[in-house]
């Protein structure tokens, strides 16, 4: 094994296999994929297609009347200012939450991958938000964000800053939701990064140290590239989750004030489950799907198949 530099192996890039060679792999691939294909096909693909079909109907989910409306639901969606507002709110949330949680998760993971005292306890504490049920978390954050009683504004007041009325101020409510979203995501990112850091061969660091690399250089040129597949994974999944965020908004702001936190997930919930417009909600779901899918594809393109870090 020659390991002159960090390298991530991406099968299929180096040598282009012939069709015959790939075909030969089919039986064994089938073996590995059979449970996945059967289960996802039955319990995910079929329901997803059914809901696509529903998006062309007007249906409340129970009525025997289910008129076909063609593309009306989509047309209505694109001409609704509510939808464009939700889209904007969601994109801001997704971008801010993903980037912040990624950076913090990586910092925490790198710090906790060192040989420091209390490492195990720290890890458990940083993971607690992932475990803490959203209802409890939402309620306590509501207290923390309380304009007069809340810890956050009291702390700010101590530093001479008058804090905003977070959850009732249309220009701050989304910031508050992002903060809680990041809070809940950091531990999750930390775990994935920690698992990946275990895979970094020590020899790389030893080599880098022999070359006289500073800690920052070791991080920048050894750790960061090796974490690239994980970063890619976490970015893709964080965006997928963030585009669908619902429960935090449901517990903390119900989309308000003045629709400033009316993310698409909540918008969809309102139409699907409060207004009983299943056809329209399915159309929302598919527009969301298309959007996330395109974003994901772009990410794959940019990172060449999700195996970033090839030099």
């Amino acid at each position: 094994m020659t390991l002159s530099r960090p390298q991530v192996h991406n099968e299929g890039r180096a040598k282009r296999p012939t069709f015959m060679r790939t075909f030969k792999n089919l039986p064994i691939a089938l073996f590995f994929l059979l449970p996945t294909v059967v289960i996802l096909g039955t319990f995910n693909f079929y329901p997803a297609l059914y809901s696509l079909y529903l998006s062309f109907f007007e249906w409340n989910g129970v009525s025997p009347k289910r008129p076909f409306v063609g593309l009306d639901n989509y047309q209505r969606l694109f001409s609704s200012s509510e939808f464009w507002n939700s889209l904007q709110v969601t994109v801001i949330y997704a971008a801010a939450m993903t980037v912040a949680a990624l950076a913090l998760g990586m910092i925490v993971a790198v710090l906790l991958n060192q040989d420091i005292r209390g490492r195990a306890l720290y890890r458990a504490l940083y993971f607690l938000p992932v475990i803490t049920p959203t209802v409890a978390a939402g309620v306590v954050w509501k207290y923390l964000f309380d304009p007069s009683q809340g810890v956050i504004n009291r702390f700010l007041a101590g530093s001479g800053i008058t804090g905003p009325s977070w959850l009732t101020d249309p220009s701050w409510a989304l910031v508050a939701i992002v903060i809680v979203g990041v809070w809940k995501r950091v531990g999750f990112n930390m775990v994935v990064y920690l698992a990946a850091l275990q895979g970094v061969p020590r020899i790389y660091y030893e080599a880098a140290q022999l070359d006289g690399a500073s800690p920052w250089q070791r991080f920048r040129f050894v750790t960061l590239p090796l974490l690239a597949p994980s970063t890619f994974f976490l970015t893709v999944t964080a965006l997928i989750d963030a585009f669908q965020v619902f429960d935090l908004v449901y517990v903390m702001t119900q989309g308000g004030p003045l629709k400033s936190t009316d993310v698409i997930g909540y918008y969809l919930y309102r139409y699907g489950f409060r207004y009983y417009e299943l056809g329209f909600a399915s159309a929302i779901a598919y527009v969301m799907f298309a959007l996330i899918f395109v974003v994901t594809l772009i990410q794959f393109r940019l990172s060449r198949g999700g195996a970033q870090g090839e030099n």
Binding site: P170, P257, L258, R270, R274, Y275, Y276
Partner: peptide, 22 residues
Amino acid sequence: VTKYPQISDTLANYIVEALYGR
């Protein structure tokens, strides 16, 4: 009426608009 929840939310949204002085 079947659409009450949506009518109610719409009404509430604009009540809030007035409360915020918009």
